[in-house]
Amino acid sequence: MTANVIGIAIIDILLFTFLVITAIAIVRVRNLFAVAMLAGVFSLLSAGLFVTLDAMDVAFTEAAVGAGISTVLMLGTLALTVREEKPPSHSVFLPLLVCLVTGAALIYGTLDMPPFGAADNPIQTHVAPEYLQRTPEEIGIPNVVAAVLASYRGFDTMGEVFVVFAALVGVLLLLGASHPKRDDDVADREKE
């Protein structure tokens, strides 16, 4: 192994460690402001991990949506609610059981998948070679991932942007609708 591969492996291990520590802190903390901030930190750590995996587009999206927009929306929501989480009135065993069963089902669902990164995987033998071969000729963009997102999946990407925008508008409308009218506005209307 080269020093570069070892360095990247160490960075990946550190990022995963920080992700686990942050996730545990999110579960343990009762202050909702701290939870919102820790969720933003979790998204930034995830974006850093995506950068080490050479997935710059996913890293950018995670940083913008996960750490940026989501954190702002959570803080806006916190302005209208209480700062501390109420203690649970039920046992923690039922949610733990649901998580364990869901996790077991997800792991069971991956048991028959081909090995990760194997050269004979269907994605490596059918889809990827077509994109790698046709992209420079059809699109003229050297970055295949950007070409796939912007051209081949352009409508899907545009749809994702519209969904995020619609969610933002919806939250802003909900936040604006819950504010009572100020006394100044009522006094100005009475003068008219």
Rank of each mutant, 00 (worst) to 15 (best):
M1Y: 10
N4Y: 07
N4I: 12
G7Y: 05
A9L: 11
A9N: 10
I11W: 07
I13S: 09
F16C: 11
T17Q: 03
F18I: 06
F18H: 03
L19A: 09
A23M: 10
I24P: 00
V27P: 00
R30T: 07
R30I: 03
R30Y: 03
L32G: 00
L32E: 01
F33H: 12
F33E: 06
V35I: 15
V35S: 02
M37S: 05
L38S: 01
A39S: 12
A39Y: 07
S46C: 06
V51Q: 09
T52V: 13
D57A: 10
D57E: 12
A59Y: 02
T61E: 02
G66I: 01
G68T: 05
I69Q: 02
I69M: 11
T71E: 03
T71M: 13
V72M: 10
L75Q: 01
L75P: 00
G76I: 03
G76V: 04
G76K: 02
A79P: 00
E85Y: 03
P88T: 13
S89L: 14
S91P: 02
S91H: 14
F93L: 15
L96Y: 05
C99V: 14
V101M: 12
A104R: 04
A105D: 02
G109Y: 04
M113T: 04
M113L: 14
M113Q: 07
P114I: 10
F116A: 14
A118L: 06
P122T: 06
I123Y: 09
H126A: 08
R134T: 11
T135L: 10
E137H: 11
E137G: 01
G140C: 08
G140W: 12
P142M: 09
V144E: 05
V144W: 03
V145T: 15
A146M: 07
A147V: 08
A150Q: 12
S151C: 09
F155A: 13
F155P: 00
D156M: 11
E160G: 05
V161K: 03
V161R: 02
F162R: 07
F162K: 05
V163C: 03
V163I: 15
V164R: 01
A167Y: 05
L168P: 00
L168G: 09
V171I: 13
L174G: 13
G176D: 09
A177C: 06
H179K: 15
R182Q: 12
D183L: 15
D184P: 00
A187C: 05
A187R: 14
D188W: 08
R189H: 10
E190T: 11
E190L: 15
K191Q: 09
E192C: 03
